[in-house]
Computed example of a mutant assay.
Amino acid sequence: MKNSLSPQTRATIINFDPLQPHALSVTEFCRSIKISRSVFYKIRNRAVHESTAALHPRSRAPRTPARKYGPPVVNELVKIRKQLKADGWDYGPRSIYYEASQQEKFPGGKVPSVATIARLLSSVGHVDAEFVKVNEASGS
Rank of each mutant, 00 (worst) to 15 (best):
P62S: 07
R63N: 09
T64F: 07
P65D: 05
P65R: 13
A66M: 07
R67D: 02
R67M: 07
R67G: 03
R67P: 00
K68G: 04
K68R: 13
G70S: 11
G70T: 07
G70L: 04
P71E: 09
P72S: 02
P72M: 03
V73I: 07
V73Q: 01
V74R: 00
N75L: 13
N75T: 14
E76K: 00
E76V: 01
V78T: 05
V78L: 00
V78Y: 03
K79C: 07
K79T: 01
I80H: 00
R81A: 11
R81L: 04
R81I: 00
K82P: 06
K82F: 11
Q83S: 12
Q83E: 12
L84H: 09
L84F: 07
L84G: 08
D87I: 03
W89A: 14
W89D: 15
W89K: 10
W89H: 15
W89G: 11
Y91W: 15
G92A: 15
R94Y: 01
R94W: 00
I96K: 03
Y97K: 02
E99V: 08
E99F: 02
A100Y: 05
A100Q: 03
S101H: 11
Q103C: 00
Q103R: 12
Q103G: 01
P107G: 04
G108Q: 10
G108I: 05
G109N: 13
G109T: 06
P112N: 10
P112Y: 10
P112R: 08
S113H: 08
R119Q: 12
